[in-house]
């Protein structure tokens, strides 16, 4: 019945959120970052699956965390209280 075809056309929006081939992932347009803080909701992904390569960020940077952050500077104003007591 023709309702099937019409139904498909009408649910385009829903279909785009459904599983699609992973190959489409690379066609994703980057989203603007200006409105990132407006809504806290975690949006549905526009594609269902993608490869590990497609998760790699172009900057190629892998050093994301600082685990050695101790500060050896002893010239802060508050530390003047203790200077020279050693």
């Amino acid at each position: 019945m023709s309702g099937s075809a019409e139904g498909s056309a009408n649910t385009t929006k829903a279909v785009t959120e459904e599983p699609t081939a992973s190959g489409q992932a690379s066609a994703l347009p980057p989203k603007p970052t200006a409105s990132l803080e407006e809504d806290d909701e975690f949006e549905d992904f526009p594609v269902d699956d993608w490869t590990k390569e497609e998760t790699e960020v172009p900057d190629g940077e892998t050093h994301l965390w600082e685990e050695s952050w101790d500060d050896d500077d002893t010239s802060e104003d508050f530390s003047a209280q203790l200077k020279g007591r050693a």
Binding site: L28, P29, P30, T33, L36, D40, E43, V47, T55
Partner: peptide, 14 residues
Amino acid sequence: YDGCHSKCVQQRSR
């Protein structure tokens, strides 16, 4: 975060 598609900035930012 690591598994997010690189272009899915909204989800990464969440």
